[in-house]
Design a protein around this nucleic acid. Structure first.
Length: 909
RNA sequence: GCCCGGGUGGCGGAAUUGGUAGACGCGCUGGAUUCAAAAUCCAGUUCCGGCAACGGAGUGCGGGUUCGAUUCCCGCCCCGGGUACCA
């Protein structure tokens, strides 16, 4: 922020005005009195308590609930909250039963870190932070039903998170029906049953949506803690301490989300979501179709299975690659290559994911000494090990077609492997190069060199689509391949080695059996601890809670509770369902209430959740739907992302950032207070280091909640990123003060008929505000309200009816002001449920229109014409108008365009 | 690299989706009020030329379609977000 203390001055003078009895007589806008008064009224009267009145049309409008950080609310939070609040208030006035709740996603690392440092229980920190958030949110005047507040760390809440986990554990996915079904309905194949109980259990485990297995995690040996992916920097060091992190294998819970890949993909079709978010989810799910093909390994009597999206290019396969971690590596590698390959695998294992991708532009690999037989032409092709092939995708092995795949091309060039072009790129500029194997071509073309007398397959002359089809049919007929689809989406690592999360309701018994805690014993609460540090072994701090940890069943068998806890996603995956019936102790929610309220009609939050939260939520919801627990296949009908609020920051000519307290403004330019150097104003994220963080509390103190709300909405389109500018707050504050001075002064409010021009504008404004709320275009709605206010002030007097309508249509944006004016006009009830004013269309229809008249597309003058005038008459009137003379001089009219209610354009030449 | 967004006055941003480019707000300039300031009110404010009427240019750049393009098409440049060898 610039140091020019403009706002400060305003604030002081404003305060002085409050103290001045002469001034206050003049209807000064005393937001600091008005706003708390109405907030208290709403709270005392439970104005926004939502009843489950099934006879009314419903509207469920949801904010992404916040993580209650110690720093409190920043101005980004109220942006989305204000938007949903405006829609909520509008919908209530339109007669909808509105569900508009708020809560806290309160598990998370910071409270735990603080506990490790200070010994304060995370629940204490969390409670404090939640209280602060609630206070801040209430100060904005948002119309939440606070009786429905939820908190993911509340045992009454996470009891049901644990309950859902149990459901996931007890569900398998029926591929045929594309549906999750209870484990009890899983048919165990005969050959498994004959192998005994252990085999059966293993079979079932292989099907459950939640399973327990070894998984690799990042481990910081210095912090003795597991780190999340995002805590690991690109150079492989831990963000917090700078030490190198290691890969470590730990027992983990995983969820089989890829089973729902197809459903998650198809479900996007009918959702009213931003296309960008849908694209991101589609990308993340990453469905591809292709084929699996078996290659005989020469001299081993085994097959190597590959996945390819381009089975049509089999004739161009000149080598194969298997991932370093592939099961068959040891068998495939020949004795003379063993040492080299083993070395290569060791080096690859040490690389982080990022080393293997981003940083390693040069492809590496090692020949195994072994060959495979290309099934389409019986040619022997070498098998390599290379880390550009990933074990986790497809089959962990590929056939490489360097002529038509850029990665394979790079690899073949590096290791001098033959490149055979089999697809003639008819129109490519570099066709000769491609045909000679000197360049890569990944687009469509006509097959060449794609026939073999040894196998009889011939696709020469076909194009890509036909080539794929014919090759797959051929492979399937011979039983050496089949059409397959694949997903990039991986199993979801669903456990953390943390204290402050939901405990898994799981017991591992000494005999190897795993059981779940009975429903009647839920919630399984967290034990009290003295020490929140993770254990030496990498287990969560829960491993230290011996009383809690060890259990004994009625037969004396000993068991150990699961020490992992659930990730923060767990609580946020289903919170929108609990708002429906938050106090229900008997069940997760009342079925009738769920049927009434779901789906969420409008969901607003940050784009940072475009993929993970929304995908995980949809996954859980679909499972619950399959089990008949919820009534809709998708949870969120309409989604909208608010853009990030940024702040101005300053940098020197060399790009060095300058903290905002060292910047002063002089005549629109910015200078360093110490060096005097001229600085450039830029837009950046708010940060402590730049000292440009805006706290909503300060804004409310200086300008009031209504001004904060209005400015957040007036800044620009809701979905765009935009910089905070204090002068902008001043602008909307001035508007509110003008409204109050005019509409709050009884002398200006008169009985009787409204002025015609003002009445027309009023109804245009109602229409505009209504339309803009529907389209979430709040900035232009506010502009319309300002235009109306300006005209009303110009007119000097308004009819009481006009003033009442204006108070109503202003109230979703500035609810305190709305209520204050409403009560001044004599009403004793809140206006929150007053019917939204009807637009009087008769006032809006016009019988004349002012047309802009253009000559060759350039506007020259305006002319008022009756709406029903015939084209010929319009033409005559316009061309005979004296103002046309100048533009027609020496020219002939070639064309006369008349678009009713729009424009008149004369083409001359 | 690929996939999405986005480039409009001094600034935040409007433009009924092909029809008056710059609504509304900030800032700035001038005036009224005031002992003075703040606040308030009035007028002006895309740029260039002109006292003005008015004229010319103008929505990142270069082409195109059209009576008419910020909007549609083709080719570039810049900024932001997502993603990372997915075979």
């Amino acid at each position: 922020m610039c140091k020019k203390p403009l706002a400060q001055t305003n604030y002081i003078s404003l305060r002085l005005n409050f103290l001045n009895p002469v001034q206050s007589k003049k209807m000064e806008y005393k937001f600091a009195e008005i706003e708390p008064k109405w907030q208290k009224y709403w709270e005392d009267n439970k104005t926004f308590k939502t009843e489950d009145d099934f006879s009314k049309p419903k509207y469920y409008i949801l904010d992404m609930f916040p993580y209650p950080s110690g720093a409190g609310l920043h101005v980004g939070h109220p942006e989305g909250y204000t938007a949903t609040d405006i829609v909520s208030r509008y919908k209530r006035m339109k007669g909808f039963n509105v569900l508009h709740p708020m809560g806290y996603d309160a598990f998370g690392l910071p409270a735990e870190q603080y506990a490790i440092q200070t010994g304060t229980h995370p629940a204490v920190t969390t409670q404090k932070n939640c209280d602060n958030f609630r206070r801040q949110i209430k100060a904005i005047g948002l119309s939440y039903d606070w009786d429905r507040e939820i908190n993911t760390t509340d045992t009454k809440y996470f009891k049901w998170t644990q309950w859902i986990f149990k459901k996931l554990y007890e569900t398998w996915f029926d591929e045929e029906q594309q549906k999750g079904r209870p484990i009890s309905e899983l048919v165990i194949p005969q050959e498994i049953q004959t192998k005994g109980k252990e085999a059966v259990n293993e079979y079932i485990s292989g099907k459950r949506l939640a399973y327990y297995d070894n998984a690799q995690v990042w481990w910081c040996d210095s912090c003795k803690t597991v780190c999340a992916n995002e805590e690991v920097l690109t150079d492989g060091s831990h963000e917090k301490c700078g030490h190198q992190v290691l890969r470590k294998n730990l027992k983990q819970w995983l969820l089989r989300i890829p089973h729902y890949g197809e459903r998650l993909l198809n479900g996007l079709e009918n959702l009213d979501w931003p296309e960008g978010v849908k694209d991101m989810q589609r990308n993340w799910i990453g469905k591809s179709s292709g084929a699996e093909v078996d290659f005989e390994i020469d001299g081993l009597g085994k097959k190597l299975r590959v996945y390819t999206t381009r089975p049509d290019t089999l004739f161009g396969a000149t080598y194969m690659v298997i991932a370093p971690e592939h099961d068959l590596v040891n068998e495939i590698v020949t004795a003379d290559k063993k040492e080299a390959v083993e070395n290569y695998i060791k080096v690859a294992a040490l690389k982080s994911d990022l080393d293997r991708t981003d940083l390693a532009k040069v492809k590496t690999g090692e020949f195994t000494g072994r060959y495979a037989v290309n099934p389409v032409n019986k040619t022997l092709i070498p098998i390599w090990v290379a880390d550009y092939v990933l074990l986790g995708y497809g089959t962990g092995a590929i056939m490489a077609v360097p002529a038509h795949d850029t990665r394979d091309f790079e690899f073949a060039e590096t290791f001098d492997i033959p490149i055979i072009c089999i697809l003639d790129p008819k129109d490519a500029a570099n066709r000769e190069e491609i045909l000679a194997g000197k360049a890569c071509w990944t687009e469509d073309g006509v097959y060449i060199n794609s026939a073999s007398s040894k196998t009889g397959l011939d696709i020469n002359g076909l194009n890509k689509v036909a080539g794929i089809q014919k090759t797959v049919e051929w492979l399937e007929q011979l039983g050496i391949g089949k059409a397959t689809t694949n997903f990039k989406l991986r199993d979801w690592l669903f456990s953390r080695q943390r204290y402050w999360g939901e405990p898994f309701p799981v017991i591992h018994w000494e005999d190897g059996e795993v059981t779940l805690v009975e429903d009647e014993n839920l919630p399984l609460e967290l034990p009290e601890l003295e020490e929140y540090k993770p254990s030496e072994t990498g287990e969560s701090p829960l491993a230290n809670a011996s009383d809690w940890l060890i259990v004994t069943d009625k037969n004396g068998r000993k068991g150990r509770r699961e020490t992992n806890t659930m990730p923060q996603w767990a609580g946020s995956c289903w919170y929108y369902l609990r708002y429906i019936d938050p106090l229900n102790e008997e069940s997760i929610f009342d079925v009738r209430k769920e049927r009434y309220w779901m789906p969420v009609d409008l969901y607003i939050g940050g784009a940072e959740h475009a993929v993970l939260h929304l995908l995980y939520s949809r996954f859980w919801h679909k499972v619950l739907f399959d089990l008949g627990i919820v009534s809709t296949d998708e949870p969120f009908q309409k989604l909208f992302n608010q853009g990030m609020i940024l702040a101005f920051a300053y940098e020197t000519s060399t790009g060095a950032k300058v903290s905002s307290d060292l910047v002063e403004e002089k005549e629109g330019k910015y200078f360093h207070t110490e060096t005097g150097e001229e600085l450039r104003q830029i837009v950046a994220k708010m940060s402590k280091s730049l000292k440009n963080v805006i706290n909503p509390d300060d804004v409310i103190e200086r300008y009031g909640a209504d001004a904060l709300r209005l400015y957040e909405m007036f800044m620009g389109p809701l979905d765009e990123r935009k910089p905070w500018a204090e002068n902008g707050v001043k602008g909307v504050f001035n508007f509110l003060a003008r409204v109050y001075r005019f509409f709050g002064n009884r002398e200006n409010i008169v009985e009787g008929e409204e002025d015609k021009e003002l009445a027309k504008l009023l109804h245009q404004t109602i229409q505009k505000v209504e339309l803009d709320i529907g389209n979430l275009k709040f900035n232009t709605g506010i502009a319309a309200l300002m235009v109306f206010n300006n005209l009303a002030i110009k007119k000097g007097k308004v009819a009481k009816e006009t003033a009442k309508i204006f108070a109503k249509i202003l109230s979703p944006y500035a609810p305190h002001m709305g209520e204050e004016l409403w009560s001044m006009y004599g009403d004793t009830e809140t206006l929150a449920y007053e019917p939204w004013p009807m637009v009087d269309q008769s006032l809006l229809t016009e019988d004349t229109h002012e047309y802009p008249v253009s000559f060759n597309g350039k506007m020259r003058f305006k002319i008022e014409l009756p709406m029903d005038m015939e084209q010929a008459e319009v033409e005559k009137t316009v061309l005979e108008d004296p103002r046309s003379e100048k533009w027609l001089e020496g020219k002939t009219v070639r064309k006369f365009i008349y678009v009713p209610k729009k424009i008149i354009n004369v083409a001359v030449g």
